[in-house]
Write a protein that binds this DNA or RNA. Structure first.
Length: 231
DNA sequence: AAAATGCCCAACCGCCGGTCA
DNA sequence: TTGACCGGCGGTTGGGCATTT
């Protein structure tokens, strides 16, 4: 048996909301609070689907919404968060007070995507569009021995040493954007891959089995070997 | 001035996961 | 265990406005 529709479609309005509908919705939520979206339309005398009411409130009528253009800081934050989270608009919106997932999604599709493409960056992977060419160019900063040393430092989880090897020629844009094509460096949120890996090897701060651990995981490695550390 | 085209964004749609009886 | 219900999410659409031809 399939799911029943969320509302009786034949008796609901569609399309743009009128001022009167907005006022009814605001008045009802101010008096009764959010929630029970399914029963809200009837209770508020609105000929709208509950989902439509929820969307209208969350994306447009909520009093804590920030209006106006996105700032450069917000741009940067959205790009950074998207590079880590992908199209998880609700998660991204949770980090931008006063912005909605719908607003950020629209802004991404209409502005940021184009901005990144103009900069030669693939908006989905956040890597150069002509990746192969860029990679070979960037690798000129490191010879074979240096690449081996970097992998060793990653294996030993020695962040200080690893950072000290980062290119120092700050005037070079290529240096700023450096990444090693043989290394896959990415951030993700997930539990540790093994019990051994849970900061337990040195005896300090070990998490017990079954204990919840959530955090940012810095993952690095090659196709053959993977290495992790927590941030 | 009118038509064509492009852009923006509010709103809709379908799906999914959690909850509850 | 199952199915209905509900809230929430991401992808897509289409109407209105702005710009270009």
């Amino acid at each position: 048996m399939g799911r029943s529709p969320c509302c009786e479609k034949a008796h609901t309005n569609k399309g743009a909301w009128t001022k009167e509908e907005d006022e009814r919705l605001i008045a009802y939520i101010n008096a009764n609070g959010e929630g029970c979206w399914r029963s809200l339309p009837k209770a508020a005398s609105l000929l709208r689907c509950g989902k439509s009411c929820r969307l209208r409130w969350i994306n447009y009528l909520r009093p804590d919404l920030k209006r106006g253009n996105f700032t450069d800081d917000e741009d940067d934050l959205i790009i950074k968060l998207h590079s880590h989270l992908g199209n998880k608009w609700s998660l991204i919106a949770a980090r931008l007070p006063g912005r909605t997932d719908n607003e950020i999604k629209n802004y991404w599709n209409t502005h940021i995507k184009r901005k990144l493409i103009a900069q030669g960056i693939d908006p989905m992977t956040h890597r150069p569009l002509n990746d192969t060419q860029e990679s070979s160019k960037m690798m000129s900063f490191y010879n074979k021995d240096e690449k081996s040393r970097i992998l060793e430092f990653v294996k030993r989880d020695n962040s200080e040493e690893l950072l000290s090897m980062w290119p120092k020629s700050s005037g070079s844009s290529a240096a700023k954007e450096w990444r090693c094509p043989d290394l896959n460096l990415e951030l993700c949120i997930r539990p540790p891959p093994s019990q051994k890996w849970r900061r337990g090897s040195d005896g300090g701060g070990a998490a017990m089995k079954g204990e919840a651990m959530v955090g940012f995981c810095f993952e690095a490695g090659t196709d053959d070997q993977r290495f992790f550390t927590w941030l």
